[in-house]
Amino acid sequence: MNYKNISNLLERYFECTATAEEEQLLRSYFQTEEVAEDLLPYKDLFCAIQSEAGVSLPADFDAKLQQRINSQKPATPFRARIISLNRSLSPFYKAVASVALVITVGVMSGNFWSARDPEPVEYNYANYHDTYSDPEIACEKVTDVLRDLSTALRGSDAADTAAVLTDAKTTIKE
């Protein structure tokens, strides 16, 4: 086996055009100790291929695998379940209940806050523009208003008094 032949075979090997016999020749060559110096880099390749070819499963592999399979629990048989209408609508019922709870709490809290004494009302007096610049005229206006209000309220008070008197007279007659 001369150097030139090995080189040719290597070239054919890397081009994937080498036959099985030629590959075997290459492996046999690289397993010898008389490998040319410039072909030494390829020695590890052909030796690794050769060592990998020697890997095989242990003798008891099949027995161990079968034992592992047999030790697993049998799968429960799948049974189709019938879902009732109520069960399928359950998420909807939960959503409705949540919304109802939120609304109820909201209404109750709203009623609670509105029933409490409100915060003091602050009128926007800064936006009030006086019609009169003379306090005397303003005083007259205010006095007239208060007098009218007093008359109106006394009118209702007088009506109350009259009703009480009428009831009293009716009671005496009876």
Binding site: S98, E119, V121, E122
Partner: peptide
């Protein structure tokens, strides 16, 4: 989510009254 919703809902009711108010003629 429920607690967050409750908080969001209660916040407007807790807003203080007051501020600039107009009388009836206003």
């Amino acid at each position: 989510t429920l607690l967050f919703s409750l908080l969001i809902m209660l916040l407007p009711t807790a807003v203080a009254y007051g501020g600039s108010e107009q009388d009836f003629i206003g």
